[in-house]
Amino acid sequence: MSLTQSSDNKFIELAKISEFALLLAMACVIQFFETLVPLPIPIPGVKIGLANSMTILILYRYGRKRTWQFSFARVVIVSLITGSFLSVPFWLSLCGAIVSVGMMTTTYRFRALSIIGVSMLGAIGHSVGQIFGVQIFLQIPQVIIYLPVLIVISLITGSLIGWLSLQLLPLLNTKKVGN
């Protein structure tokens, strides 16, 4: 490997790290503001999930491993900002993120699924994970009755977020980095 190639690789690696950090910061800010603006739907856990569009971008740009790192970092950082680290909302958020990312990373290579389908599965996974978390950490089994409603809302929000990610992805997919 020549000196120029090595320098180029380092530059590309730096650009990737910067992009990862930028998307992570954006995801944290979006998620934080989403917690401040509740939707007029009186069901616990319902949100648009705009921050998930950043997770989808990471998934399609960097693959599985980075997506897990991204999602875990997002949950931890937002919980530190909101002051809920290691409390019940943190664990519920983590449960949602684990199932959501698990479903998306498993299915994103399926040719029959578009980014919208993957996003819908991620949103459904998030709802299932949170309901599962409520069973474990709050032990309120009746909450499972909310699941069908949450799943229908997840289909709608998931398709919107998927479509949004589809619009954002080409903006990042440029080979030209820097000058």
């Binding site: 980014i115 919208i116 389908g117 819908m120 459904i124 799943i151 229908v152 289909l155 998927g162």
Partner: peptide, 19 residues
Amino acid sequence: VWQTMKIGDFIVVALTLAF
């Protein structure tokens, strides 16, 4: 959104709604 969706996406929607 509808035009972008693939066959697998519609299967996901159909199965979810059936459930």
